[in-house]
Structure formats: C-alpha cells, structure tokens
C-alpha cells in the first residue's frame, strides 16, 4: 500500500457519492418511495467505511453495486414519475463515483506510480468531458418529446443491438489478435 499523491480524487469521490445517493433518495422520496432510502444510506456508509479502512477491493465492488442500484433506482423513479433531472444527476454522479473508485483502486494496487498527479488530472479531465457531454445530451433527450410507433421502436432496438454486437465482436477480435 503506497501513499500515492492523489489530490483531486479523495475530494471528488465523497462529493460524487453523496450527490448520487441524495439525488436518488430525494427523487424517490418526493414520489412516495422513501422505502429505498435506507438501502442507499447503507450502501453509501459501507462504501465510505471500506474506503476509510483502505479496502479498495471491497470499495470497488460496492461502487459497482451503487452504479447498478442508481440505474435501477433512476429507472424506477422515472416510471413512478420522479423528477428526470434528479434521476439523471443520480446516474451521472454514480458513474463518476464508480469510475473514480476504480481509478483510485488501480493506483493504490501499484507500489510505484510515475507522475501520479498528471495521471490523475488527465483522468479527471476526461471524466468531466464524459459527464458533461453525457448530461447535456441526456438532458436534451429528456426534454424533447416525440412519439414513436411500435415498428420504429423495434427497428431502433434492433439497430442498437446490432451496433452493440458489432462493437463487442470487433473488440474481441482485436484483443485475440493482440
């Protein structure tokens, strides 16, 4: 275990986690689904405790769980009519938490990190790009209202599945070639 000079990550991580779980809890509570709030609190506390004890492996697993729960919670929230902005904020912040937790875990697992500060700054910069772009496009998508027929929906679904399978097969081919 080393004391790698990470400055931004330890500050951003709790902020992201608190924002994600607060947005999710608030959104769901406002629609009368406060029953989920204790689960979010337990998850957040467990994640924070594992980080405090420097159990970064466990923190990574909990971060995975937080992302899954945030996605599921946001989906439920949207279905029960929660504020879409809050749900989007929860997902985006959970994504940030998930990414930074694993980044921290990768760096802590290695005894020596060269220019850790540069590495961290670059990582956070790219994460910000992903989060800002993702939020902007998702907000726009949530704002527009259009009606799609069943056929269009199925075609869209098939297109998405095809694109995804092509991407995965390309990646697999690349990795086997390497």
């Amino acid at each position: 275990m080393n004391a790698s000079p990470l400055h931004l990550t330890p500050r951003l991580l709790p902020a992201c986690m608190i924002a994600a779980l607060s947005a999710l809890s608030l959104g769901l509570a406002l629609r009368g689904a406060a029953i989920f709030v204790p689960l979010f609190v337990i998850l957040g506390v467990a994640w924070g405790y594992s980080r405090h004890r420097r159990q970064h492996g466990l923190a990574g697993i909990l971060a995975d769980l937080v992302l899954v729960v945030a996605m599921a919670g946001a989906a439920i929230g949207l279905l029960i009519g929660a504020l879409p902005a809050l749900m989007l904020l929860a997902v985006v912040m959970a994504l940030g938490t998930w990414d930074l937790t694993h980044f921290e875990r990768r760096l802590r697992a290695i005894a020596r990190v060269e220019r850790a500060g540069d590495l961290e700054r670059r990582h956070v910069r790219w994460l910000l790009v992903a989060v800002v772009c993702g939020s902007a496009i998702a907000s726009f998508a949530l704002a527009i209202r259009t009606t799609l027929g069943f056929g269009a929906m199925v075609a869209l679904g098939l297109l998405a599945a095809l694109a995804l399978s092509l991407t995965i097969s390309t990646l697999r081919r690349e990795s086997s070639g390497a």
């Binding site: 899954v68 996605m71 949207l78 989007l88 997902v91 994504l95 993702g134 998702a138 998405a160 995804l164």
Partner: peptide, 27 residues
Amino acid sequence: LVVAAFFLGLAALNGGIIALTIPLLIY
C-alpha cells in the same frame, strides 16, 4: 447496464429510461 436499461425503456415505452443510458454510452 446500458442494454438492460435500453430494453427496459423499450418495454415500458419510457424514453426517459433510454435517455439515462446516454452518459454511460458517452463514457
């Protein structure tokens, strides 16, 4: 997660759920 949310959105006919996958897709 993206696939699950996408198909859930399609099944529930809720575009908002599909929109939630956009940050993940950008990432």
